[in-house]
Amino acid sequence: MKLGIIITTDRHLDHVVGITQAASAKGHDVSIFAMDSGTRLLAYPEFTQLCTADNVVMSLCQHSASDQGVNTEGISKEIVLGSQFNNAMMNNEADKVISL
């Protein structure tokens, strides 16, 4: 399964990490897109480190990050500083999409 996760709030870090790790361990491909206040999760290493798994890709809406005052300097190159286009790609490719 290709699982898409749209993160629109910063309230569910534990679930983001738990679901991503569980899906990744089962061999599913996971794509994460953060926007709105979800971009605030960039401040948490537990979140940013998810991109180190081979079958997890991460991107975020840079416009949202800017709006939310999120510092994107120095974040892993594996995390794409993108736009709503990245969300569109994720939804187009994913078998299932959840939002957290």
């Binding site: 399964m1 679901i19 569980a22 299932k96």
Partner: peptide, 12 residues
């Protein structure tokens, strides 16, 4: 259980 939740997401 996140494990069980992922299975449910896949199977629904």
């Amino acid at each position: 259980s996140y494990d069980e939740l992922v299975d449910k997401i896949e199977q629904c």
